[in-house]
Design a protein around this nucleic acid. Structure first.
Lengths: 111, 111
DNA sequence: TTATTATATCAAGATATATTGATATACAGA
DNA sequence: TCTGTATATCAATATATCTTGATATAATAA
């Protein structure tokens, strides 16, 4: 019980303690449902690297997955508890530059 | 500008991503102004270890110091910005066990 | 001054996390 | 079935952090 609560808190703060994940979270918060390949083309990062970080953001409660065919679309989970919501709002307010979005997935062409 | 905001955010989440620091923050939040020696006697940890973690909590904006003679008393900083305040409240609500307080410093004998 | 106490810092080893490249799995369409 | 695409996972290396013990600095009291 005690250990679980602490572990959950540390999992949450650990997910937030990485520049790559903060940028991904901000990008997904801004652009909505995106798949790994969209992030790959937008950020120019290796797929394995993105997949790993997205998994951490998912398992720490920040993202939900929506499967459509071969694609998995990741979005900010709703609703978020107060702490995670405050964290997302803090990240939303961060004055950092993000790449242009380049969608490769087929479900959305509003590039 | 961009880098500073990101670094400040990561410094904050990094401070929260450690079980020892979470326990110290909760303890100080509960008991108020404490010095390193009070934490040493209460937690039974080495002074160098405590000093290091307190420094990280101080430099990440969670604690203030109040010097009195040879003692340095650490308290939760007020006011805290929204994100740090939410983090402290989250930690306050964590159902984890803390040690009994054993004050060694002279300014307070209400053990 | 000297001794004592409180706190800070350093160096080394242990532990944890990030990155990369390769491989594995899952699914859609021909 | 086979092919191509999307995603997940693994192993090895690099990097960062934590802990400990020792040392250094600062302030008080004798």
């Amino acid at each position: 019980m005690n250990k679980e609560a602490m572990d959950d808190f540390l999992k949450t703060t650990g997910a937030l303690y990485d520049e790559t994940r903060v940028r991904l979270l901000k990008f997904i918060d801004r652009h909505g449902a995106l798949c790994i390949c969209d992030l790959e083309s937008s950020f120019g990062m290796l797929q394995s690297r993105l997949s790993r970080h997205i998994k951490i953001l998912k398992e720490s409660g920040f993202l939900t997955v929506q499967k459509e065919g071969r694609w998995s679309y990741y979005s900010i989970r709703t609703p978020l508890d107060r702490f995670r919501l405050q964290a997302v709002e803090e990240i939303r307010a961060l004055p950092i530059e993000l790449p242009e979005i380049k969608r490769l997935s087929r479900s959305c062409y509003i590039d």
